[in-house]
Structure formats: structure tokens, C-alpha cells
Write a protein that binds this DNA or RNA. Structure first.
Length: 550
DNA sequence: CTGGCCGAG
DNA sequence: GCTTCTCGGCCAG
């Protein structure tokens, strides 16, 4: 089973250093020199590097942190608003630098960038006679925009570490493209630091998988490029394998605790093994390949084609695209956890508080900022309530793993889009008319429940008809760019005459489509008062609804 | 579409 | 021992 390697893209990964802590440091620079920990409930969710030097770490109990470092400064970070805002500001800066806006956000503190076009353009304008005084062009049209750099060495670190760093001879080689990319990465990190105040750690390679993994080699405030060769030959193992093979499987993005557990169990032959199992151990295990991986990981819940995907990942092959951020999220949720929540009145009060926050977030994230009236750019259709019952004290043994959240959903009542009403009244009404009935479906017993968590969410968010999806379809050509530099790695056996890739099977997905009702979408207009899309036939009734005095 | 699982930070 | 507050993808039913 040959694994195809596609190294035509250049991908950067950025990870802001201890992001939550940095947000407070930017706000209050005096904190930078002090040990700083960010608290949510009873734990330290993250801390700055001064605190780590003194023995603190992520996900540590507050009381342990105070015992180990009595002078630690603790700030409360349960409200994520400022983190969300800082994340967005950083994202917008990076996006403004990258051609085609090819930037994907992962959580609040990580980005993937596809900079292939920028790099190939800058390779094409290099002067081979004076590489030391090169200029990185950030703009195709205005040649004055950009930054000077020395194209005879990598910026930052490399894996593996090089001694005398010889200059790549072939300007179009992968090595030269990565070298140029390392300077772009340095420029971006420097902008983030000097314009906004955040240091970041960077990785440079040809896929999300490798860029992210190699970036973590020099933390914080460093960057690392994974050097070619990326393909093994008969005499030489590729740097991809040298790098990847030593990683414990759990460290590989996409392999979570469940998958790691199953892989370890299969490799060691023990039900519950905590032995260190590396990528190499799995990759070279007798009989290993996509079919066996499918079998090992097929346990309910695993995605289809998981074996093939995992087999690729174990070889450092990851063709997943950098997906442009949507302008609306697919869901918005608010949650809080509790030490004890067992009376109806307490539950009701918390649900109102959560609902108020949810409505505030809907307004912040889904409302148009432009025109003073403010129109809804998107409408969630579903409301979901989740709870996590506290596990009974007797059931200790960790044999049972699952997130133990349960949920119910219902249509989202249209009145929450009403902008004239204040949020307290809307939250009150939402709880009364919708959330409480979901709660009763979740917990039919009158009492006796003991909840450790409440979560309320709007999901199934659809964009408003009139809303322009800006710049979503650009660069279709990029999606078909692919083969080109596709080389064969891992030449165990000659491959069978390969069926032409990228050709659709004769009659795939084609028929079937015409027994669908061709539902003509109902003509509708957005209500000018609340922004809801309302079918024409319902306008009159809808406006009467607005005229009902509360 | 719903409810749950898995994985990400 | 598995904690916080999210978000997205995927699956069977």
C-alpha cells in the first residue's frame, strides 16, 4: 500500500504563547515579570512562563499552585469575552498579510496559513546573484511593501539542526521554498509582537500536521522548519520519519485518548497499557496497514475511512486543506459548572443567567455592525440544553469513559431576535417558554438530580438570504492544484497499475437528485423590527405579533 | 434533525 | 485524578 506524498504546498502554523495569560499581560504590562496564573473555577487553566519556571502548569488545582508559588498573581478567566476579542484582532492582522485570506483558526490561539502562492511568487523574484540582500514582497502590485531578508540561511531553528547551513543550490527546491517561508513566518511573528504585543511560536512545513508538530519543538517564542528530504530513499530515511517516528502516538493531532488507548492495547497486547507506544511502533507493527487500523479503530463512533487516514498520518501525509474561516459560527454555547445544583429555583436562576449571556453573544456575533438598526446576518434555528449529572459517589473505577453530558433540543423561538426588548426580559421569557420544558424532558424527576454543569446553545445557524458571503469562492483553481509534485514515498512494493486518480467513478452522485421535490424556497422578507425572515403569507400575522403589548 | 462521541485548545 | 469553557465533524437512528 503506497502512501502518496504531496509537498507542493507551504503551510505555516502559529500558536500564541500561553494565550490567556498574555491577554492579561498586554492589558497590564507590569504582570509580565510576575508569575501569573489564569483561574477558572478551582483550576489554573494556563499560566505564563515565569509561573512555569516556578513549577506551575496548566490544569493545576489553584490550591496546589498557591502552595508551590505563594506569590503567584491569580486572575479570573471564566468570562471569555476578552480572549475572543484578542483572538479576532490577531486573526485579522494575520489575514491582512496572507494572500487570498488563506488562514484557518483553531481555537482561540492557533492559526494555519497556506502561503504557497506568496512563497512561489517570492521565489520567482529572487536574485540568485545577491541572495543575502533579498526582499520579501507582501504585495504583488506595490513592490515597496515587504521586508528585507537574507535568503542564504533559515530564520529561526530547523529540524534536524544544521551545522554550517549550506545555501540551497536549486532555487525552486523544497528546501529553498521552506527557507523563504521561514522568513515570512518571522515577519508575521514580529508583526504580532510589535503591533499587538503577543509572542507566538511557529512551525513551517508542507501540511497542517507537520507544521503544527514541528512548531512545538521550540516553545515559547520560537519557530522551527522541518527540513527536506521529505521522502525516504533506499539509503536514507526522510526527515519526516526521523521526526515523526519518535513521537508518542497520543501527541499526534487527530489521535485522542480513545484512539491512543486502542492502538496501545493492540500493540502491547494488554487491555490497559500505559507503555510508551510511538508512531514507529505502530507503523512497523507486523500486518499494520489501513485494513488493520480500520479494525483496531472501528469501535463505535469512529469515522469511516479512518484506517486509511491514520495510515497516512503515521507516514506524515496530510492533504487536508486550510479552510477559510466562516463569517458566522455553526453554534454558540454558554456554560457554567457548579459544585452543587439541586433545587429547582437555583436551576431556574442559572438558566436565566446563561440565557442572558447567550443572547448577548448572539447579538455580538450574529448582528450586523453596520447600519444603526442592526440586522441579523444569520439565524440559529435550534436551541439546545445540556446538563452533566454528577456521577454517584460510589462509582469510582474509571472503566466507564464518556463525556456524560446529556442534551435535548427544540426550535428556537423567534422572539429572541427582537432587538427592542432588553436582554433580561428576553432571557426570562426564553427560560419560561422553552428552556424549562427541555429541562423537564432531561430530568423528569421532580428533584433529586445533582447537576455539575449546565450548557445552553443555539445551533443550526443559517445565514440570512440577503447577506453577502464575501470572498468565499475565490481561488477555485487552488482546489484542483494538487498532483504536480506528487511523489511516491514508502516504496515497499510495486504498486498495481494505479487507477487514474481524481476521476469520478462513471455514475457517481448524479442520478437520485431528481426525486427530490424541487422545493421552491418560500418567498420571504426579513422583518424590519426583529430581523426574522418571514414568509410573505405570514407577514400580517407576524406584524400583529409585534403589536401585542407585552 | 437529534443526541452522542470524538477531537481540538 | 481528568479538572475549564468552548467549537467543529461525524455517526446511527
Amino acid at each position: 500500500m503506497a502512501v502518496l506524498r504531496n509537498d507542493s504546498r507551504i503551510i505555516l502554523h502559529l500558536d500564541y504563547d500561553c494565550f490567556y495569560a498574555s491577554v492579561f499581560e498586554v492589558e497590564q504590562p507590569a504582570l509580565r515579570s510576575l508569575p501569573l496564573a489564569v483561574q477558572q473555577k478551582q483550576i489554573v487553566v494556563t499560566c505564563n512562563y515565569e509561573a512555569r519556571r516556578r513549577g506551575l502548569h496548566k490544569l493545576q488545582l489553584i490550591k496546589d499552585a498557591k502552595r508551590i508559588c505563594p506569590d503567584v498573581v491569580i486572575v479570573l478567566g471564566e468570562d471569555l469575552t476578552k480572549f475572543r476579542n484578542a483572538s479576532k484582532e490577531l486573526y485579522l492582522l494575520v489575514r491582512s498579510l496572507v494572500w487570498g485570506g488563506r488562514v484557518e483558526k483553531l481555537g482561540f490561539d492557533e492559526l494555519f496559513l497556506d502561503v504557497t502562492e506568496m512563497i512561489d511568487y517570492n521565489i520567482s523574484v529572487l536574485n540568485p546573484n545577491d541572495l543575502t540582500n533579498s526582499f520579501f514582497h507582501l504585495d504583488r502590485k506595490d513592490p515597496t511593501i515587504g521586508t528585507a531578508y537574507d535568503a542564504t540561511h533559515f530564520q529561526g531553528s530547523t529540524f534536524p539542526v544544521t551545522e554550517g547551513s549550506p545555501v540551497p543550490t536549486d532555487l525552486s527546491s523544497l528546501e529553498m521554498r521552506l527557507l523563504v517561508a521561514s522568513h515570512l513566518q518571522g515577519h508575521i511573528r514580529s508583526k504580532l509582537e510589535h503591533q499587538i504585543g503577543f509572542t507566538a511560536t511557529g512551525g513551517i512545513s508542507t501540511s497542517k500536521l507537520l507544521a503544527k508538530l514541528v512548531g512545538s519543538v521550540h516553545k515559547p517564542n520560537g519557530q522551527t522548519t522541518l527540513l527536506p528530504p521529505y521522502q525516504s530513499t533506499l539509503e536514507n530515511e526522510s526527515n519526516v520519519h526521523r521526526f515523526l517516528d519518535e513521537h508518542e502516538i497520543r501527541k499526534i493531532p487527530g489521535i485522542g485518548s480513545r484512539m491512543a488507548q486502542k492502538l496501545r492495547a493492540h500493540i502491547t497486547g494488554q487491555e490497559d497499557s500505559d507503555a510508551k507506544v510511538t508512531v514507529r511502533d505502530v507503523r512497523l507493527f507486523p500486518g499494520m496497514g489501513p485494513p488493520l487500523l480500520d479494525k483496531i479503530l472501528s469501535g463505535l463512533g469512529s469515522a469511516k475511512g479512518i484506517g486509511t487516514k491514520m495510515w497516512s498520518v503515521l507516514h506524515g501525509v496530510d492533504n487536508s486543506e486550510i479552510l477559510q474561516g466562516r463569517d458566522v459560527p455553526t453554534q454558540i454555547s454558554i456554560e457554567d459548572s457548579y459544585g452543587r445544583l439541586d433545587t429547582f429555583e437555583a436551576v431556574r436562576r442559572e438558566l436565566v443567567t446563561l440565557s442572558r449571556s447567550l443572547i448577548r453573544r448572539m447579538r455580538a456575533d450574529l448582528l450586523d455592525n453596520e447600519t444603526p438598526p442592526g440586522r441579523w446576518r444569520a439565524h440559529p434555528r435550534t436551541l439546545r440544553l445540556s446538563t452533566r449529572p454528577r456521577l454517584p459517589p460510589g462509582s469510582e473505577t474509571g472503566r466507564t469513559y464518556h463525556s456524560n453530558r446529556i442534551s435535548r433540543s427544540a426550535p428556537l423561538p423567534a422572539f429572541i431576535f427582537h432587538l427592542d426588548e432588553n436582554m433580561d426580559a428576553l432571557a426570562e421569557r426564553l427560560v419560561q417558554e422553552s428552556v424549562l420544558s427541555m429541562f423537564r424532558r432531561l430530568h423528569p424527576e421532580k428533584s433529586g438530580w445533582n447537576l455539575s454543569l449546565l450548557n445552553i446553545a443555539v445551533t443550526n445557524i443559517v445565514e440570512s438570504a440577503g447577506d453577502q458571503k464575501q470572498s468565499s469562492g475565490r481561488d477555485i483553481g487552488k482546489m484542483f492544484q494538487q498532483q504536480e509534485t506528487v511523489l511516491r514515498d514508502w516504496t515497499v512494493q510495486e504498486q498495481e497499475p494505479e487507477a487514474p486518480v481524481d476521476v469520478l467513478p462513471p455514475d457517481s452522485e448524479q442520478a437520485e437528485s431528481d426525486d427530490w421535490e424541487d422545493d421552491e424556497p418560500l418567498a420571504s422578507l426579513d422583518c424590519t423590527l426583529c430581523g426574522c425572515p418571514v414568509p410573505l403569507f405570514a407577514h400580517e400575522a407576524h406584524m400583529m405579533y409585534h403589536s401585542v403589548p407585552e
